Simulated assay, not measured.
Amino acid sequence: MAVPLVSVPEFGLRSTHSQAISVSATIEEEPSASQEFNVFQVYQRILENEEIATPLAAILALTELLDHSRAGTMFELVKELNGGAEVLKTRTSNSISLNAGCELFIAFVTLFPHESDSFSELKTELVKQGQQYAKEALTYRHKIAELALGFIKDDSVILTHSYSRVVIQALLLAHKQKRISVYVTEARPRGFGVKTYEILTAAGIPCAMVLDSAVAYVMDTVDFVLVGSEAVVESGGLINAVGSNQMAIIAKAANKPFYALAESYKFHRLFPLSQYDLPTHHPDILSFPKPAHRSSPALTARPSVHPSIAGHVSTATEELPTWKSGLLVKSPFQMSMTPEQISRNPSVDYTRPDLISLVFSDVGILTPEGVSQYLVGMFAG
């Protein structure tokens, strides 16, 4: 069952202030500062802090844009913020979680009631609120970890996927109080599962790396699956690192709980019906390139290994067994995946709400249906 939803989003989309500002409120006309302010550079600088997630970095970047804005009306201000959000979106390969943060902040600015006598005072208050929200949002992972702790029992065996800061924090907290063991997938092609494995192992948690293709093999031995999120969408479904969907399907078939951990600033008003409705999908994904010339009938397929965490392509060569004249012999075989081949694969996928058991968030433990209700309340004004 879902924890009762809070009626007031913590970002302050609703308030007890007496009245909302009119979109026609004005101050002295000045030229726009948005052309002088590089919102993308600010966004990149903020992301250098490992503790700040993509949507939160977008909120902070738009807060700085607001601080530098010379807009004289709410209409002009919202237009500048939408323009800044569009710049961030177009210059980011995967803009899903970024869009969630931008959407939340712009809705906050649009709906924020106030008691200010001037528009400049309102902008100052909005900047203050944005900075305060970001500071508070850094505590969300700990709140979520505490909620998840109640579902982790002694000697639990947990399967996780790729790299998620909130999942790592939940596992580290559980390790302090209980005995747990963790299976971590590689999460090819970026190989972020290796990073998770190294962090958990360094903390003394018994871990084992699992091939992405071995998830079904290991599923019967785990108690539940715990994953992070790029975004939780309006349907209650999950967008996360590619491979999450097949993991959820296998967990459902094995009757294992599939839990998602997500900060509320990752809740996104998006309603995909399939993988091909995601903003990240484009025609080249999983398309068949036209061969430049006819190739020989010899074996040309190249299985991949994960590149390093930095994203470089592995060029490792391994002696693989092959059959020759009825005997098993070894022959050199290039194990690599070209950048073009990687680009033809999705980086994220969509997991349907019926495959998700619960969503742990800073606003409570929600069913997928509860996420939909929360989003409606958040953006209702």
Rank of each mutant, 00 (worst) to 15 (best):
A2Y: 04
P4C: 07
S7G: 10
S7D: 08
L13K: 13
S18V: 10
S24G: 04
S24M: 10
P31M: 13
S32G: 08
N38G: 14
V39S: 00
F40W: 13
Q41N: 12
R45F: 09
E48R: 15
T54V: 12
T54F: 07
P55D: 00
P55W: 00
A61R: 04
L65K: 03
R70T: 14
A71L: 03
G72H: 07
M74V: 09
F75L: 11
E76P: 03
K79V: 13
K79C: 13
G83Y: 08
G83I: 04
T92G: 00
S93Y: 15
S95R: 07
L98Q: 13
N99D: 11
F105I: 05
A107I: 04
T110P: 04
E121D: 15
V127G: 09
V127C: 10
K128G: 10
L138P: 08
T139K: 12
Y140C: 07
K143S: 08
G150M: 04
I152Q: 00
Y163D: 09
V166S: 08
Q169F: 00
T185I: 01
A187E: 06
P189M: 03
R190F: 08
G191R: 02
F192D: 11
S213E: 06
V215M: 02
V215I: 13
D220M: 12
T221K: 01
L226E: 07
S229C: 02
A231E: 01
V232G: 00
G237P: 04
N240D: 10
G243C: 02
K252V: 07
N255Y: 15
P257T: 05
F258P: 05
Y259E: 01
A260T: 13
S264Y: 09
L270P: 05
L270T: 12
L270A: 03
S274C: 10
D284K: 10
L286I: 10
F288C: 10
A292L: 12
P297H: 11
P303T: 12
V305I: 15
P307N: 03
S308C: 10
A310M: 08
E318N: 15
K324E: 15
G326E: 06
M335L: 13
M337D: 09
P339A: 09
S343F: 07
S347V: 13
S347R: 07
S347Y: 05
D349Y: 08
R352K: 13
D354F: 01
S357E: 09
S357G: 09
F360Y: 06
S361M: 01
D362G: 09
D362K: 00
V363A: 04
P368W: 02
E369Q: 10
G370S: 09
V371F: 00
Q373A: 06
Y374M: 00
V376Q: 02
G377W: 11
M378N: 06
